[in-house]
Nucleic acid binder design. Structure first.
Lengths: 220, 220
DNA sequence: ACCTGAACACCGTTCAAGT
DNA sequence: ACCTGAACACCGTTCAAGT
């Protein structure tokens, strides 16, 4: 070894790759600039030559995680089914790596990374008669419905029923006189199936879009 | 002063209160256990006598932030309007303190803190004929739609149009041959009005619920 | 020019020691 | 019993110094 400082030629892409892998494997909370540097076998400060800050790096990692998302072609079938399918695929891509979800939540320009979904979504909206800003609005409803529901997904994991206290523990005592309807339906508050709830709500949004579309019966 | 250690009688509620205030004023990123202790004029370790960890404390802060939410009575009017109003009120409560939003995103048992909304939501669902688990499912769709959209809200703040690069900067070059529909509608991608988009999508969900309700015309 | 080592100003948390 | 001080094992980031 001629010198102690190798001109590593460390590329930004490589840094983002390794950061992505580390976060994916160990989680966002575990990740640090120093651990990243160790994984890259480089001085902690070298990373700062390529990225201004940890935030800037995380931004790049988030964008990278979504950049190469390849959405499959939508299946044949009724319009509603294809619209729901778009949402389902999008969501499963976002959920694919749970450790990166926290990153997407704070990463701006989420939609910019998902060009494929924009193309497919707009096509669907035009198919039922939406044009221009109307098509964009309709697409955005569906898109952000999907992203929002996905970000909220982990809240379902720890819902009562299975937990020690059960519903009592979570809701405390539901006062029959102030919350009569709630009290009467308490036994129906079973644990939440996130996938089913998403699917159900997506159908509601899709049906709403379809009903409000300029063209209701000309899809062919 | 007789001794240097006051038997402060520091109450957990007081700790949570001060933590809530600090986060609300300076943000979640600024907040630390040591700064909290300084604000309480107490040794940093004293807080650990009441809370096992920072996470446990933040959990308590999140719950406290929602505990006393008093939802106003729903206005008179058509069912759809009242359902939308419930969502709007819920959202504005969650958005009231933007600095606490990040807390809710990771706080489990979000719904447990919002008993009021459960009572009102279930009442609405029963009004159009939903019963038992059907009513709970319908309510959950509306509730989590609202929470999800709220958590995603800040993504809209930095949407292109006003930013330096504009749409070009965010989307890069939209290839006309691979994304023809997108390219054709590029000019319709104006900046996102989060409130309007939420309102619009909420109407879609509400309309979907109404249409799928057991009773369609017996509301009275 | 490119990289590093040491240092600065912080963290959350543990634990032996004080009163 | 109740609280603290010092310490441990970390952080992100700056910057003068090395090659």
């Amino acid at each position: 070894m001629p010198t102690t400082t190798r001109p590593s030629g460390l590329q930004p892409d490589q840094i983002v790759d390794v950061a992505h892998t580390l976060i994916s494997e160990h989680g966002l909370a575990w990740f640090s600039m120093r651990k990243l540097a160790a994984a890259l076998d480089v001085n902690p400060m070298t990373v700062y030559l390529r990225f201004d800050s940890k935030d800037a790096l995380l931004d790049a990692v988030a964008r990278r995680g979504l950049r190469d998302v390849e959405l499959p072609d939508l299946p044949e079938g009724p319009w509603e089914d294809r619209a729901v399918a778009l949402c389902t695929v999008l969501r499963s891509h976002l959920l694919a790596d749970r450790n990166l979800l926290g990153l997407y939540a704070t990463a701006d320009r989420l939609s910019a990374a998902l060009l494929q979904s924009v193309e497919q979504g707009l096509t669907l909206m035009e198919e039922i008669g939406f044009r221009g800003e109307g098509a964009v609005l309709a697409f955005r409803s569906l898109f952000w419905h999907t992203v929002g529901f996905t970000l909220v997904h982990h809240s379902f994991d720890h819902f009562p029923a299975d937990s020690p206290g059960g519903l009592q523990g979570t809701f405390g005592t539901v006062d029959e006189s102030t919350h009569p309807v709630f009290a009467r339906n308490l036994s129906s508050f079973t644990s939440v199936d996130g996938d089913a709830l998403f699917d159900h709500t997506t159908h509601l949004v899709v049906a709403g879009l379809r009903d409000g579309a300029p063209t209701s019966e000309e899809t062919r």
